[in-house]
Amino acid sequence: MKQITLRFMLNGKNMELETAPNKRMLDVLRGDLGQTGTKEGCAVGECGACTVILNGEPVASCLVTAAQMQGGTVLTIEGMSETLIGRVLQDCFVEGDAVQCGFCTPGFIMSAYALLLKDPHPTREEIREAVAGNICRCTGYIPIVNAIEQAGIKLRA
């Protein structure tokens, strides 16, 4: 297939690369760019491990093509430490024991980031809705919801 020149913003930096337009966004990030913080758990949009932010919305990057990224703004776990919301979320996940094996963690943090970006005052129910597309086999979720709730409180303070 013909390659395209893909230009987009990744964690605040301009990116330009030649790639196939139908390549999965997940493979562009993990493969072409070596940004392996975003994980693959199912490849069918069910686990949320591959969640990233595209133009302000959380997306399952296993279901997005390179062509759909054209000209877009992308945030991944690697860029979280450079954002205030991201840093606070990271601290709260660590402090709240919301991380066990950690494989789901980047996806949860990205979903939580998208939520807090839009709504700094989410209720627990809203938090649960926001991460309903992310599955975690280790934590039983409550510590994750606690961590996101805590992050909201800290960000408002």
Binding site: Q35, G37, E40, M80, Q90, V94, E95, D97, G102, T105
Partner: peptide, 17 residues
């Protein structure tokens, strides 16, 4: 604090794949 937590929340932790 879990000794591997920071690496896991920043995407630095290296898993098999």
């Amino acid at each position: 604090e879990r000794i591997d937590a920071r690496a896991k929340v920043t995407g630095r932790a290296e898993y098999g794949a």
